[in-house]
C-alpha cells in the first residue's frame, strides 16, 4: 500500500525526469529520504537554521527539475500542469508576464503529503516535488525570515 502510493505520487515528476533525461540543459536534483534522515545529524547554529531543520526533518524526499535558456518555458509549463492526476489539487496559480506557476498538493489522511510546484517563464522551467509532512505555514515563513529572493537560491542549486 505504502509502496503503491509512493510510486504513484512520484509519477508526475518521475515521468518528467525520464522524458527530459537526454536534455543536457536540464538540471536534476534528487534528495532521498535517507538523506533527509541524515540531515538530522546537522546542528543548526542560528535560529533560522534550526527552523529550517525542523521543516526539513519532516520531509521524506525531494526532486527538482530545472531547465534554463530554453525557447518557450511557458509552453512546457502549460503542458506540465495538465500532468498531475486528479489526486493532486491545485493550491495556487499565479500568472503574469514574467512567469506562470502552479502549486499542487496531494493529501493523505488529512495532511499534505506532497507539494508540487510547476513554474515556467519565457526561457525557464521548474518542476519541483516535495514529499513528506509539509507545513505550508512554515515553508512560507522561511523566505520571509531569511529575506532571500527565490531566484538567488535557484542559482545556488545550479552552480553545484
Amino acid at each position: 500500500m505504502f509502496l503503491s502510493i509512493s510510486v504513484f505520487s512520484q509519477d508526475v515528476v518521475q515521468r518528467f525526469f525520464q522524458e527530459m533525461n537526454a536534455d543536457e540543459n536540464v538540471t536534476k536534483v534528487s534528495i532521498s529520504s535517507k538523506m533527509f534522515e541524515l540531515f538530522m545529524h546537522i546542528d543548526g547554529e542560528t535560529n533560522d537554521e534550526k527552523e529550517l531543520l525542523e521543516t526539513v526533518s519532516k520531509l521524506k524526499g525531494m526532486k527538482i527539475l530545472i531547465k534554463e535558456e530554453m525557447a518557450d518555458g511557458k509552453r512546457l509549463y502549460a503542458e506540465a500542469i495538465t500532468r498531475p492526476s486528479s489526486e493532486y489539487e491545485v493550491l495556487l496559480t499565479v500568472e503574469d508576464n514574467d512567469e506562470d506557476m502552479t502549486f499542487f498538493i496531494r493529501e493523505e489522511n488529512g495532511r499534505i503529503a506532497e507539494l508540487v510546484m510547476i513554474a515556467g517563464g519565457e526561457s525557464n522551467f521548474i518542476l519541483l516535488s516535495l514529499l513528506g509532512e509539509i507545513d505550508l505555514n512554515q515553508i512560507s515563513k522561511l523566505s520571509r525570515s531569511m529575506n532571500i529572493e527565490g531566484m538567488e537560491n535557484l542559482e545556488k542549486i545550479e552552480n553545484r
Partner: peptide
C-alpha cells in the same frame, strides 16, 4: 551532506519565495 542540505534549503526557499511572491494570495492561502 552539507551540499545536499544546501540544495534542500535552496529549494525550500525557492518554494517559499515563490509562494510569497503571490503576495496576499499566500496569506490567504495560509
Amino acid at each position: 551532506l552539507q551540499a545536499a542540505f544546501n540544495q534542500t534549503q535552496a529549494a525550500l526557499l525557492l518554494i517559499s519565495s515563490k509562494m510569497n511572491s503571490a503576495g496576499s494570495h499566500a496569506d490567504q492561502l495560509n
